[in-house]
């Protein structure tokens, strides 16, 4: 299935959850925040949130800022 992640299209396995998605992307779950279709997904729900085809995902992390 296809996801839209941070504006880019990505192919992932059907039934993929957010934890698996972060692993596929090489991201640490404890350093990011994730929105699915504009709703924040709490970290404790990463492994139980199963993604659907065409989900819009935003993944943010901290960068330098004043």
């Amino acid at each position: 299935m296809q996801l839209k992640i941070n504006g880019k299209t990505l192919e992932v396995k059907d039934g993929c959850n957010i934890e698996a998605l972060l692993q596929q992307l090489g991201l640490k779950a404890d350093r990011v925040a994730v929105e699915r279709n504009r709703n924040i997904v709490m970290r404790s729900d990463f492994d139980t949130t199963v993604l659907q085809n065409n989900d819009q995902i935003e993944i943010v992390n901290f960068v330098g800022g004043g």
Binding site: I5, N6, G7, K8, L10, L25, G26, L27, K28, R31, V32, A33, E58, I59, V60, N61, F62, V63, G64, G65, G66
Partner: peptide, 18 residues
């Protein structure tokens, strides 16, 4: 210490500043 939030570049994840 202040920090900002930005989209992760999924093609090129950067060194984690935290």
């Amino acid at each position: 210490v202040t920090v900002a939030l930005r989209r992760v570049d999924i093609d090129n994840p950067q060194d984690d500043m935290l």
